[in-house]
Design a protein around this nucleic acid. Structure first.
Lengths: 208, 208
DNA sequence: ACGTGTTTTAAATTTATGTTTAAATTACTT
DNA sequence: AAGTAATTTAAACATAAATTTAAAACACGT
């Protein structure tokens, strides 16, 4: 990843605008004309700086990947000397806030969600670089909570149960907002959701 | 929804082919040329029968919605006199099989998943007709399991925890397959997943 | 078999969008 | 300040895709 400091300001403003629009509309629906209009650069700028739309998209993913990585450290801010349950709580809380909070750092998650449904070829690298590390972090915590009397398969499934709960609240926003007659999550909502998932998951793991 | 019987055979074959390709590639990436090629009709047939690509897409959603509805009855095959926990087991099992089993009836789920990420305007009706009924069915079961000492909010959150777990196994397939070095779920895998989610969720609800 | 309405076809048209070009402008170096 | 490289611009270009058209083929009741 090219550090932001060394990137041309115009190139960076393209990536910023592009990320917003890609996250809203997906790769195909997004036109280079719309991106250039949003950040007020000439239509030819994308090809000038990035070669073509596709390379610009990849640069955009990396740009937001690095923003997300800055915002949430690799270890999710988990204290290695905390108890397993505390670690799990911290993980869930951090993950949920990263998914649901408004702001630049959530764009990467949205772009990632699109890649799942409509992979562009960038997915393999993203899974390796961004998703697997978080998955393995969580599954190591789950193993600690469950103790050593359980199989890898059980750990894996429980890890997925927790991730699934978290991701639902982002992926199913169109339903949730319709059920609740709202169209955002408040800070309070997010807190409640995180607490619920922590609670629900610990209950399940405790008696596993 | 126009019953299949009254639909022109050619129109129906277009919807069949279209559904497969839309589910694979999404609305934008799918071209009318490709659909017409797949079902061996002339390029103009889509406009002739449906007016334009967009109306054909809507007809396609309805077509597969009705196929899915035929395959899985409205009540998920739940026996009203079963115990709450048995009802929950049946619901999860049915839901997971519907999501993960290969076949026509899963296409609707895939199309629905795309709508979430990239709504085309059909989403409102789909939420009302297909999603809310299932959601309310599950939440009524969750309420039975939890008993009456819990708030609507708690019931709602637990319902989402269960749905989230189930949907993860479809939405996160690109990760799961990479973690497991496979690219399908076997019948056995699906059974294990369903059992796990039932187990995990009942443990959580029991101690709620 | 005739005629009418429907369906099918290949080709033409239109539109949207990514990309290239070449000239104009700006920034930088000596 | 002159000259060179980098950037910006508007316009042109290319391509791919949806849509339309009009003629041909077909189906079917009389």
């Amino acid at each position: 990843m090219i550090p932001a400091k060394t990137m041309k300001p115009k190139a960076e403003s393209i990536l910023e605008a592009a990320g917003e629009i890609f996250a809203e509309q997906g790769y195909r629906k997004t036109t280079v004309r719309e991106i250039c209009k949003r950040c007020k650069v000439n239509l030819a700028a994308i090809n000038y700086y990035f070669g073509d739309k596709d390379h610009m998209y990849l640069a955009c993913l990396k740009h937001y990947q690095s923003i997300a990585a800055q915002k949430v450290p690799f270890n999710f801010g988990i204290n290695p000397s905390a108890s397993p349950k505390e670690k799990l709580s911290t993980f869930i809380q951090t993950f949920i806030f990263r998914l649901l909070e408004e702001g630049k750092q959530t764009l990467f998650g949205k772009l990632l969600a699109r890649e799942f449904i409509e992979p562009t070829g960038a997915l393999d690298a993203l899974v390796e670089e961004s998703i697997k590390p978080s998955f393995y972090l969580l599954s190591s915590i789950v193993r600690e909570v469950l103790g050593n009397n359980c199989t890898d398969q059980e750990v894996e499934l429980c890890t997925m149960s927790i991730l699934g709960q978290c991701l639902y609240f982002r992926n199913a926003q169109p339903i949730i907002f319709r059920l609740r007659n709202k169209d955002t999550f408040s800070e309070e909502d997010i807190k409640e959701i995180a607490e619920h998932i922590i609670n629900f998951s610990l209950k399940a793991l405790d008696n596993y």
